[in-house]
Simulated scan of single mutants.
Amino acid sequence: MDLEAVRTFIAAAETGRFQDVATGLAVTQQAVSKRIAALEKELAVRLFIRTARGAQLTIDGQAFLPHATALMHAEQKALASVRPGRRALRVDVLARRSGMSALLRGFHEARPEVELDIVGLVGIEPAIAAIQTGEIDATFRYVAGAQDLPAGVESARVFDDRLDLLVGPRHPLAGARTVRLPQLAGHRIWIPGVVPGVEWSDYYEELASEFGLTIDGIGPHFGTDHLMDVIADSSDVASFVGEKPRLAWPDGHDLRRIPVVDPTPVYPHSLVWRSDNAHPALALLRRHLAGLGRPIGAAGSWTPAAA
């Protein structure tokens, strides 16, 4: 349906005079008449009765008017859904229960008036492609180096997420107050769902290689609850969890979250965006993250050399 014709019909219904509509829309009266005639032909009904006093709605015109108004409202919503500054800020996070998601929650609490649309893409390459096409405004990723980013795409390291060791009550390290990273060699560390070729897989491969760790990514990832169930029942399985996610396990699991030291592994989160993205909420998000005051690359921490 021609929305210009619908808009013209609404204006004619409000004024009752085609000449006034023509003046208001900056078109000729003949153009107004043609739009109304085309709309009547499409609907197969008469919308107006022409009288000496102007144009009056027929019964069909009266029936169509509220739906025509709804079409105009739908048009406005459709435009607002994609126009920067009027649509929601689209941000990609790797996992809903992660340090990245926690950063976004903090931003939402600080700026509740900013509408957010959270998406989850697998791998940095699809995320960067979505940045370039404008499908998303920003993504939180582990960026191995600025050289990996195409022209026009920028990144800033915004948060180092400390990794803790998660074990069950029967694990040999369950009683430790802290555990040294090299001390984990020989222990099975299970991180299900690690997909080869994606950036978090590269992170754990380098961590395992440098400290001789056994990191097992076998099996699908059924979520954090399943991971905690397995660890609670095991005497030899441990996992890494970030400091930001708040884990609440059932009574009886008695899990232990143990800080890792000498050095402390941290997962470096960077915000990635397109340089010419004009969405005003993106600037607000960047300022919020820059103002967190979190130490980046603190002494005693470990990140891959490429970070």
Rank of each mutant, 00 (worst) to 15 (best):
A52I: 05
V114F: 11
E115A: 15
T69D: 06
G61D: 08
R97I: 10
V91E: 04
A129N: 13
E40H: 03
A130F: 07
L79G: 06
A22E: 06
E14K: 13
A74G: 07
A22Y: 02
L79N: 09
L103W: 03
T133I: 11
L39D: 04
V21N: 08
L43C: 02
L103D: 05
S101C: 06
R97L: 13
L43S: 01
I49P: 00
A26R: 12
V93E: 07
A44L: 13
V122I: 15
T58P: 12
A63G: 00
I128W: 05
R105P: 00
D92M: 05
L116I: 05
I36M: 05
L47F: 03
H108L: 12
L71M: 15
F18K: 01
G54I: 08
A13Q: 05
A88N: 06
E125W: 10
Q76W: 04
A37R: 14
A88Q: 05
I10D: 01
L39I: 07
T69L: 13
S33K: 08
A70Q: 14
L25E: 13
V82Y: 02
Q76F: 04
A80M: 05
K41V: 05
Y142I: 07
D60I: 00
Q56I: 14
L103H: 04
T69W: 04
L71Y: 13
A80K: 04
L39E: 06
V114K: 07
Q62M: 12
P112G: 02
L57W: 03
A130H: 11
A80G: 07
A78C: 02
I36G: 01
R105W: 03
A37T: 09
S33L: 09
G24T: 12
V91H: 02
E135M: 12
V91W: 02
E75A: 14
Q30E: 13
V119P: 06
S101H: 13
R17K: 10
V122P: 00
F18A: 10
D20N: 12
Q56D: 10
A88V: 03
Q76L: 14
A70S: 13
H108Q: 15
A110P: 07
D60H: 15
R97K: 08
A129S: 14
A78V: 05
E125S: 10
H108S: 15
V91S: 10
T51V: 02
I49F: 00
G123I: 10
R141M: 14
G120S: 15
A102V: 08
I59N: 09
F64M: 13
A26L: 11
L43Q: 08
K41T: 11
Q62V: 12
A13W: 07
Q62G: 02
V91I: 14
I118W: 11
R83D: 02
F18G: 00
A130P: 08
G24V: 07
E135I: 07
M72D: 06
I124T: 08
